[in-house]
Design a protein around this nucleic acid. Structure first.
Length: 863
RNA sequence: GCCCGCGUGGUGGAAUUGGUAGACACGAGGGACUUAAAAUCCCUUUCCGAUUUCGGAGUGCCGGUUCGAGUCCGGCCGCGGGCACCA
């Protein structure tokens, strides 16, 4: 009998056995019968070409859930595919002169081979890549349905334009106001873009996200903030000066502070407000001002530094509540066109931006909120009523003043009264505003899903007929010229108008790749059967990185609502993911040589007690523990780990120690420790493999004690897995294994209990280390495949001890311990406790005021 | 600036209805086996004091509630994350 477990031999053997048994194929609803379903999904990967440790952790977690559910008798769907469109493929095409499709499918093949080594319980029969024409063709059909339903529209929008690469850049791709590739200063440009009406669902998305009780609180908060609901007043200020043509009604503004209306000192328009644009056409100074505003970048730092700039239009409006008061109308650079109405009224005393602006342009500052806070209230400005020595706007709580009949009201009350007044004057109404913008989905890229519309000079925008779908990407493209290869393609965009037959042009924009990941889980559920989709959806447990907390998870929630509303999916709530878990990253120490190069962990060795670079004389210093990344080179290749220790060790390590939602630091010694543990587990089974299982015997105390350990551990692991406390489950396994190991020293009286424990242990290990579990199961003569076995039954009688150890405290300090029968009454426990010899020194001669007995927990004697 | 989290040994962390703080692991130290090494096994490992049995302190800091607080409440300090000229 071998004395060591050899994962290199065992792991492929068992994976083959699972594959032959087709073990992880989801059952159809009919096959499943009464079984409950469990749809377990990890965020599908981008096929970069290599698996990294972050993937291993992500998919190991999902696999724990999927395998556990299977063992608990669920019909499990656990599919995998590829999020295959995107920029890296185009970059590779430019750098290596390889077609993006070829590059992508090669990467998929390479990664799939790596995936298979991990022993994941995946149903590969549903695999697809989002760049498969079948998939994106279906996406095009959905796009057209959305368009039909009015959920898609085109409009002019400001975008980041790189003048060298001739392309639109996402905000994330603009670094310090320059294009990330070209380094050219980015311009703001107006372009016609396609949009999805995600804002139609703003209220529902916000309301429903609060109800997702199996989502992390953090993610729900982030989504709520992103949607950014605010209640306020939308109203118009009527002209005091002559009304500009086309804007006779006045200036429409939005405010969340109608309570400060009496403190208004000016009205401000966005530089991009239609009225501003209109006026600028005949006013070169204003046009110059607008250009100045456009120069300021969109990055955080720029905005922070940007001074308040204003332009006095010379126009004036009437204050709605103060007879005879007029307010100047400015154009101000801090007013955004994208929020509210693109115009505001300013109350400088209670808004910092308005305050800065008022000080700069010498506009009135009239405080209308009297602070509750004493220090602030003592300032002269409160009583002076004219701003006085105010150094900053006051935005805290208080009561209204200087505001006619609003005086003395609380802010909240004043708000509703002010809204009522404006409504009575028919100048506006209370309203709700959202920060959420419609989703701009146009990308001037090749490697994405073509937007299936045709532009005809006569008919306008014409949808591609369904029979012509998919609109396939052309293969013969060149990346020589900068910009979108689809535009440069000689023939692809030339097409006859489906309506009138005249020559027309295809849309050359492709869809933002976030579209691809917004419905892939529905495609996994079924290629085209709505009933099967309804059976599987929503995803019961979704697992992925927190970096998708807003974008992907919000888009997917929108997509399911849109698909529901066009009759594409039967999902009444519109919520795609009932349970969400966001896992932490895998980190590693960083290493830097004395000449300033980052080097990989594999290039570091210990020499004379300090670290050096292998094969050189450079000493190495240890840097911060960071997320594994190519730039810092602190990466550990899963392939190497699997080759050295086996997949089970890698899985075990990334799940142990840290709670799943937190980062875990990869260390060599930790991996070695996990590898040692694998051997330790195996040795328990190896020791039993040549032994005959005893038939029957009544249990001795020692045997019962061991059985208790096994049954308690199984129950604890079960619970910990369900609660995503994998690190706790692993700690329990450690204790259990130690107990079983120790029992090897005892006599035959515990043999039966050892067999029982081993059998339960193998099945409990399946979610974590499936290959090892299988090998161990086989060693003790387990029936069939362990991965197909049911979760071990727990004898609940064995979970309860006959007697319990209880600590005894005197005045809250632990002074002794007693052992009492589980069923002992409070009075009995009290009597035993008070008689405890070790306690006498602490209670002797003192009056006992009170004795608190919590049966099974604690006794506290108060003297 | 606003909104969330989180502060426990040398390290990762456990303590999940307020009830024995430090489970489990890594690291470190000591020992056994061995000619030796590897492998394996055992012991110690929060701090201070007492040679054991023991006593005192201790979960970022200050205070509170409670018989009892890592856990609840108030106020600080520190760290991390998200959002940000959003009216």
């Amino acid at each position: 009998m071998a004395s060591r477990y050899d994962p290199q031999a065992a792991e492929p053997k068992w994976r083959e056995a699972w594959a032959n048994a087709d073990l992880f194929k989801a059952q159809t609803p009919a096959e499943a019968g009464d079984k409950p379903k469990a749809y377990v999904l990890e965020m599908f990967p981008y096929p970069s070409g290599r698996l990294h440790m972050g993937h291993v952790r992500n998919y190991a977690m999902g696999d724990v859930v999927a395998r556990h559910k299977k063992a608990k008798g669920y019909n499990v769907l656990h599919p995998m595919g590829w999020d295959a469109f995107g920029m890296p493929a185009e970059n590779a095409a430019m750098e290596k002169n390889v077609h993006p499709g070829e590059w992508t499918y090669q990467n998929i093949a390479a990664m799939k081979a790596q995936f298979e080594k991990l022993g994941l319980s995946l149903d590969w029969s549903r695999e697809f890549a989002t760049c498969d024409p079948d998939y994106y063709g279906e996406q095009q059909r959905l796009f057209l349905k959305f368009m039909d339903q009015g959920l898609v529209y085109q409009k002019n929008a400001k975008v980041n334009w790189d003048p060298v690469d001739n392309t639109v850049l996402a905000n994330e791709q603009v670094i310090d106001g320059k294009g990330w590739r070209s380094g050219a200063p980015v311009e703001q440009r107006e372009l016609v873009q396609w949009f999805f009406r995600i804002t139609d669902y703003a209220e529902d998305l916000l309301e429903e996200v609060q109800k997702l009780d199996r989502w992390p609180e953090k993610v729900r908060t982030m989504q709520a903030n992103w949607i950014g609901r605010s209640e306020g007043l939308q109203m118009r200020f009527e002209w005091a000066s002559a009304a500009p043509t086309g804007f006779e009604a006045g200036v429409e503004i939005f405010t969340t502070r109608p309570d400060t209306l009496y403190g208004a000192s000016f009205v401000a328009l966005s530089p991009d407000h239609p009225l501003t644009v209109d006026m600028a056409a005949n006013n070169t100074d204003l046009e110059a001002f607008r250009a100045e505003c456009a120069k300021v970048g969109t990055s955080e730092a720029d905005i922070e530094k940007a001074p308040k700039m204003g332009f006095d239009t010379g126009l004036t409006v009437k204050h709605p509540l103060i007879e005879g008061l007029t307010l100047p109308v400015y154009v101000a650079n801090f007013v955004l066109m994208g929020y509210g109405t693109g115009a505001i009224f300013a109350c400088p005393a209670h808004d910092q931006r308005d305050f800065d602006f008022a000080r700069k342009y010498d506009l009135p500052i009239l405080p209308v909120v009297k602070p509750i806070d004493k220090d602030t209230a003592s300032a002269t400005w409160v009583t002076s009523g004219q701003g006085g020595d105010m150094e900053a706007a006051y935005t805290g709580p208080g009561t209204i003043m200087n505001s006619a009949d609003l005086d003395g009201k609380e802010i909240a009350d004043a708000k509703s009264i002010a809204i009522g007044k404006i409504e009575a004057l028919q100048l506006g109404q209370g309203t709700v505003n959202y920060r959420l913008r419609d989703w701009g989905v146009s990308r001037q890229r090749y490697w994405g899903c073509p937007i299936p519309v045709i532009h005809c000079d006569d008919c306008g925008i014409v949808p591609v007929p369904e029979s012509d779908l998919p609109v396939k990407l052309p293969d013969d493209v060149s990346f020589e010229k900068p910009g979108n290869p689809l535009v440069h393609h000689p023939t692809w965009k030339d097409v006859a108008c489906p309506k009138c037959g005249k020559s027309a042009q295809r849309e050359t924009d492709t869809l933002d790749t976030f579209n691809d990941s917004s419905w892939y889980f529905a495609r996994f559920a079924s290629v085209d059967d709505p009933a099967e989709r309804a059976y599987w959806l929503p995803v019961d447990q979704y697992v992925g990185g927190v970096e998708h907390a807003v974008l992907h998870l919000l888009y997917a929630r929108f997509f399911m609502r849109a698909m529901r509303d066009v009759g594409e999916v039967d999902l009444p709530s519109g919520e795609p993911f009932a349970g969400l878990f966001t896992q932490g990253m895998v980190t590693h120490e960083t290493y830097k040589t004395d000449d300033g190069r980052w080097i990989t962990p594999a290039e570091v060795e210990e020499r004379d007690g300090s670290l050096s670079e292998i094969g050189s004389n450079h000493s190495v210093s240890v840097g911060a523990i960071e997320k594994m990344s190519k730039s810092k080179k602190n990466v550990v290749d899963p392939d190497n780990i699997i080759a050295t220790f086996g997949a089970d060790t890698a899985r075990w390590f990334v799940l142990s120690d840290s709670p799943p939602e937190r980062d875990v630091e990869w260390t060599q010694s930790g991996a070695e420790g996990a590898g040692r543990f694998v051997q330790r587990v195996w040795s328990i089974f190896n020791a039993l493999s040549d032994t005959e299982q005893p038939v029957d015997a009544s249990d001795t105390d020692a045997a019962t004690a061991l059985r208790r350990v096994s049954h308690k551990a199984t129950a604890a692991i079960d619970k910990a897995i369900e609660e995503f406390r994998f690190n706790s489950a692993i700690a329990t396994v450690h204790e259990w294994v130690s107990a079983l190991k120790k029992a090897e020293q005892a006599g035959d009286e515990v043999l039966r209990a050892r067999f029982e424990g081993a059998s339960m242990l193998a099945r409990s290990l399946v979610p974590f280390m499936p290959h090892l579990a299988e090998e161990c199961w086989h060693l003790i003569g387990g029936e069939g495949l362990c991965s197909a076995a049911a979760w071990p039954d727990v004898d609940s009688a064995l979970l309860v001890e006959d007697s319990v150890t209880m600590p005894i405290q005197v005045n809250g300090k632990r002074r002794a311990e007693i052992s009492v029968a589980k069923i002992a009454s409070k009075d009995d426990i009290e009597a035993i406790a008070l008689a405890e010899p070790a306690l006498q020194a602490f209670i002797d001669g003192k009056t006992i005021k009170k004795v608190i007995v919590v049966p099974g927990r604690i006794v506290n004697i108060v003297v």
